[in-house]
Design a binder for these strands. Structure first.
Lengths: 201, 201
DNA sequence: CGAGAAAGTCGACACCGCGTCGATTATTCG
DNA sequence: CGAATAATCGACGCGGTGTCGACTTTCTCG
C-alpha cells in the first residue's frame, strides 16, 4: 500500500537491501538471515525495512523476479528447435548451470520456502509451466515428425525433465560439471539411445 | 543426557507425540505445527515436551528413521537384478510411490528443512548413498555384461535417477499415477530406447 | 514398608524475531 | 513558503522457543 511512485533517494536503500540479501544468501541459508541484518546492510533501522518490503520473503521474491529473464535466456534455440539437437541442448543447460552456480543458495532457499509462501510458489509454477509447455510442444512436434519415440504424455515427460533439472542442479556442488551428463540423460529420455555410444546389445 | 533406560509410562507419551506429529503432518506443513500442539496431543504441557524431545525437528528425525525400513523395502529385486527388468523396477517404484502418498508431507517438510538441520541432511544423505551405491553397482554389472550402453559414470547416473525420483514424487499430486511413466523414463535413462511400449498412446 | 533415586510434570521466565503504530524529521513541488 | 509525501525510528505487543528450578509421582532395593 505504501511506497507508490517516487523515483529517488530511498531507492538506493531498496537496492542496498536487495544486494545485501544477495550477499548474505551466498554465505548462509535464508532461514538464518534476519531482517535486522538486511536493514543493517542498507544502514537503516529494522523498522525502516518495512517501508521497503513487507517481509523477508518479499525480498526473495524480488530477487527471484530479477532472475526470471536469465532463466529463460539461451534456451530458445533448443526449445524452438526439432530433433536431438545436442548442441542447442547443451547450450541451454550450460546457461542453467551458470545460474545455479551463481545463485544456488537463493534458488534453493526460495524453493524450500515455496510451500507456505504463495508468491514464491506462483513464481516457480509460472517458470515451470512455461518450460513444460514449450518442451511438451517440442516433443509433440518430434513425435509427429517421427523423430522421437512414443511414450509418456508430452506434458508429463516435460514435467519430469523439468523436475530432474531442478533436482540435479540444486543438489550439485558443481552444476557446470553436470552439463554433459544431463545432455546425455535428457536426450535418452526424449529419444532413447541415439547413435552409437559403445556397447548396447 | 536425560532419558536413559526405563521402559514404561512416559514411553506412551513419547509414542503419543510421535503419532500426533504424524497426524498433524497429514493436515498441515511442518512449519505450521507448534510444539504446543504436539504436547497437547500427548496431553502434557509444552515444557514437558522437552523431556522427550529436544525440538520439533528431533521429532521429525525420529519419524524419518521409522520410515527408513519402508523406503528400502521392495526394491531389492530391482537393485540386485540385472538388465531392463521392467517388472522389478515397477514394483520398486510402486512401493516408493505408496510411501510418498502416505507420508509426503513429512518427507517434503523434512527435506525442505534439511539444509540447516544436519541430522535430517545426514539421514537423507545416507538414504541416497545407499541407493546410489546399489544402483551404480547394477549399472556397472549391466555394462560389463553388455546389457546397457556406455554413458555417464555409474555413480553420477545413479545420482541423477535418485534425484529424479525425489523431485517427481515430491511434486506429484498422485505419486501412484506417475509410476508407469517413471518406469519408462528410468529404463530409457539406463538402457536407451527399448522395444516398443504401449503404455500411454 | 519406607527412604531415596530416578522419571516425569509444570509454571515462570528470558530470549528472539516478527510486524505494527504513531510520532518525527527530511524532501519535494506547487 | 507551506502542504503533501517520502523516509526514519523507537516503542510496543505477539507468538514461539528453550531453560530452570521446584514439585510430584513412580520405581527399587535394603
Amino acid at each position: 500500500m505504501t511506497r507508490r511512485r517516487g523515483p529517488s533517494k530511498g531507492d538506493r536503500r531498496e537496492r542496498a537491501i536487495l544486494t545485501t540479501a544477495r550477499d548474505l544468501l551466498t554465505r548462509k541459508p535464508l532461514a538464518d538471515i534476519t531482517i535486522d541484518e538486511l536493514a543493517a546492510g542498507a544502514e537503516i533501522s529494522r523498522s525502516s525495512f518495512y517501508f521497503y518490503f513487507d517481509s523477508k520473503l518479499a525480498v526473495v521474491v524480488a530477487l527471484l523476479h530479477d532472475l526470471t529473464g536469465e532463466l529463460h535466456a539461451g534456451s530458445s534455440p533448443w526449445l524452438d528447435g526439432t530433433g536431438p539437437d545436442e548442441e542447442a541442448l547443451r547450450r541451454s543447460l550450460t546457461g542453467l548451470a551458470a545460474i545455479w552456480s551463481g545463485h544456488g543458495r537463493l534458488l534453493a532457499g526460495a524453493l524450500a520456502a515455496a510451500p507456505g509462501c504463495p508468491p514464491i510458489a506462483a513464481w516457480r509454477a509460472g517458470l515451470r509451466d512455461a518450460h513444460v509447455k514449450r518442451l511438451a510442444a517440442r516433443i509433440e512436434r518430434d513425435r509427429a515428425a517421427g523423430l522421437a519415440p512414443d511414450g509418456p504424455a508430452p506434458a508429463v515427460l516435460a514435467g519430469l525433465i523439468d523436475d530432474l533439472r531442478l533436482a540435479a542442479f540444486a543438489g550439485a556442488a558443481d552444476p557446470a560439471g553436470l552439463v554433459d551428463d544431463m545432455v546425455l540423460v535428457e536426450l535418452r529420455i526424449l529419444y532413447g539411445e541415439i547413435g552409437e555410444t559403445g556397447a548396447a546389445g
